[in-house]
Simulated scan of single mutants.
Amino acid sequence: MKRIIYIVLGVLLIGAITVILIKNKKSITEKEQVIDRSEIPVTVKVYHVDSVKINTEFRLPATLAAYEEAIISATTSGTIKYLDFDLGTRVTNGQTIGQIDVDQKQLELKSLELTIEKLERDYKRNETLLKGDAISENEVIESKYDLDLKKIEAEKLREQIADATISAPITGVIVEKSKVKGEYLTAGEELGKVVDYQRLKAKIYVPESKVFKLNKGMKVLFTSTVYPTSEFSGTITYISPKADANYNYPVEISMNNDQGKKLKAGMYIQVLLNRDKHVKSMLIPKTALIEGVQTPHVFVVQNSKAVDTKITLGEEYGENVEVISGLKSGDEVVTTGQINLINGSNIKIINE
């Protein structure tokens, strides 16, 4: 009898456990069931697209440099006889500013000139003797050879004497002097440097999106931190046809250093381009871009739904970016809440 009671109790216990497990499984299944939220509107903020007038002026940093600088050297070797310049001396192109000692070469030249005179007399005499068959033709040829050889030696000496004059290679100011009178100088050795400060230049690096707005010969303005209330003018003299590794194009600007205030090489400047030029364009906040400027696309509001739209970007203006194509005036683009959106999501605008 007791055995039967135990069996009945066991069956009842197993049944109770089974009922509990079934209820728990049903509860877990209900919790794990995916709720369809596709029709629930996502709360967003939007920006109303419109054409606005924007200032296309932009500034780029640069450092002033001398327009031209050159090394002072001699084209012949020798002892320096004199140097007629010091640091700060103004010189003009071609001006004689020094001399290599060529006294010995001048004596050699005089000796050669006397020798040439004698050889010329000997040659003329030999030609006369040849006509009378008093000497052979070979003797005449040898006398002519000796004469020509000495003439060549004399010409080389004259060139060396002329090359001994040290001249300024450009017009400017002496900024370096490395030799003094009495020192020995080899041909081509540097003995100073002259810099042209009457003209200056600066190099700027213009982004590829802006370089096509520039032209050779275009006038530009620039400011200097040394003269913060003054503006100076320059001219674009060169635009590189090739960009650097950062997709910027080197552009060179030159200017005359006669604009009332003395500018100096090494000064930091800001170059102003597209001064006072305004155009109408569409701008949107950068926060509207779903994946940034590399693959630009935005959510446009259409019939209370978010439509993924590709766009083409232009210039960046602070926290805004120019839209060249893909949008039109009157469009509304989502600026917050994109993380919860997919193409076609229902939206609810809460700009107010």
Rank of each mutant, 00 (worst) to 15 (best):
D84S: 11
G326R: 10
T76F: 01
P207F: 09
L313T: 10
Q270G: 07
K280G: 08
K348C: 06
Y197A: 04
M218P: 06
E183C: 02
R90A: 12
E315S: 15
H278G: 05
M267S: 02
I135V: 14
A70S: 13
A288P: 04
V19G: 10
N274L: 09
D86K: 14
E108M: 13
E117S: 10
I350P: 02
K2L: 13
I97Q: 00
S254P: 04
D36F: 02
I350V: 14
T229P: 06
I7L: 14
T165C: 03
V293H: 04
K179S: 09
K150V: 05
T287M: 09
T287P: 02
V279H: 05
K328L: 07
S329F: 06
E30D: 09
G188K: 01
D146Y: 11
D331T: 04
V173W: 01
L129K: 06
T287V: 07
R121D: 12
Y247L: 14
I135D: 00
L60P: 04
T76R: 04
T237K: 03
F212G: 12
A202E: 01
G260T: 10
N274C: 08
G330I: 06
I5T: 11
A66C: 07
V42I: 15
L313I: 09
L83I: 00
Y6A: 11
G217F: 13
R3Q: 12
S73N: 12
R37A: 04
L87E: 04
A187L: 05
T29E: 15
G337R: 03
L200N: 03
R125M: 12
T29A: 15
E137K: 15
G88L: 01
L60C: 02
K156T: 07
L185N: 01
E332R: 15
T186E: 13
G266I: 03
F85V: 02
L191E: 00
V293C: 06
K124T: 14
R199D: 08
Y268L: 12
V44K: 05
L12P: 03
I236F: 04
K26P: 06
S329R: 07
V271H: 00
I170S: 00
K105W: 11
Q302Y: 06
D50F: 10
E252I: 13
N257R: 04
E120D: 14
V226N: 13
S178P: 02
L64H: 00
N343L: 02
I28W: 00
Q270K: 14
V206Q: 04
N340Q: 13
T92I: 13
E155S: 11
T75N: 11
R199S: 07
